[in-house]
């Protein structure tokens, strides 16, 4: 089975966000594989181990993303592709990313493409379905269970807390929701092997993409932090009085009940 995983390098969830000069400061920040993409990688490895084939992880970014690709290889992916856009693209949006990924994937005859259902930075959740649409294949988002028998694919997906059971077929793109699996940590032998696994680096030229083809459709005008909250009130006194006071505050001061 020919399996591809779309991966994004994101800020570590522990990071505080600092804005200066209208941009998010990246200096000194720790980066990770987008947590939802980790579920996608884990699932891809599991599917490959059960059905045979090869797992290729793909990302768009700059040289720094090599680290996240090596981590994916250390988890057990077979090959990695970095589409380096640093010199070609100033502003990217979901249209840009999906276009580039689809151009790369269009002649790869992928049976299964996996991605996270959302990236924890931009949080739009658009790229997976857009790529599937550009490739003309079916997609299922926010999956929590995947089983494949021949061409038949049985899936459970999370729809706002409820579980939807469905059937579809390959080729297919799915996006991973939390609960799909428990991503493995790279083992030491895995990390050693990953250093020797193939990591291909491409630029837009290699994909015959013109910069104009991928011009973002949206424009970010401003980035800012939410207003700091004033310190709250810790209630004091006898516990039952605190509870009475809290109910009164919620009704009369905050007026939310």
């Amino acid at each position: 089975m020919n399996i591809y995983v779309l991966v994004k390098r994101t800020f570590d969830t522990e990071e505080k966000i600092v804005v200066s000069g209208g941009k998010i400061q990246e200096d000194g920040a720790e980066f990770i594989i987008n947590p939802y993409d980790e579920y996608a990688i884990e699932e891809a490895i599991t599917v490959r181990d059960a059905h045979g084939g090869e797992v290729t992880v793909i990302t768009i970014g700059n040289d720094e993303a090599e680290k996240q690709l090596r981590t994916a290889l250390a988890m057990g992916a077979d090959k990695a592709v970095l589409i380096n856009t640093e010199d070609d693209v100033e502003e990217m949006d979901q249209f840009t990313s999906a276009y580039i990924l689809a151009e790369y994937l269009k002649d790869k005859k992928a049976d299964l493409i996996l991605a996270g259902n959302v990236a924890i930075d931009g949080g739009s959740g658009q790229v997976g379905p857009r790529v599937a649409d550009l490739l003309g294949i079916n997609y299922v988002t926010t999956i929590t269970s995947l089983s494949i028998e021949g061409e038949k694919v049985s899936i459970i997906r999370d729809i706002e807390g409820d579980a939807e059971e469905l059937e579809t077929s390959l080729p297919l793109l799915v996006t991973a929701q939390q609960g799909l699996n428990e991503p493995r940590y790279p083992s030491l032998p895995g990390i050693m092997k990953a250093k020797k696994k193939p990591l291909e680096e491409l630029e837009l030229d290699d994909l015959d993409i013109e910069e104009d083809d991928v011009e973002a459709k949206t424009e970010t005008i401003e980035i800012y932090l939410p207003p700091k909250k004033a310190a709250g009130r810790i209630l004091e006194g006898d516990l039952s009085n605190q509870v009475t006071e809290l109910v009164s505050l919620l009704r009369n001061e905050a007026k939310v009940i």
């Binding site: 979901q94 999906a98 949080g123 857009r130 550009l134 973002a216």
Partner: peptide, 23 residues
């Protein structure tokens, strides 16, 4: 920006070759 909206909007945006501002 619901389960349906999140799933459908990117497909429609792709078909229209349009930008989409989510959430």
């Amino acid at each position: 920006h619901t389960s349906v909206g999140k799933d459908l909007a990117p497909k429609i945006a792709s078909k229209l070759q349009a930008g989409l501002i989510s959430d």
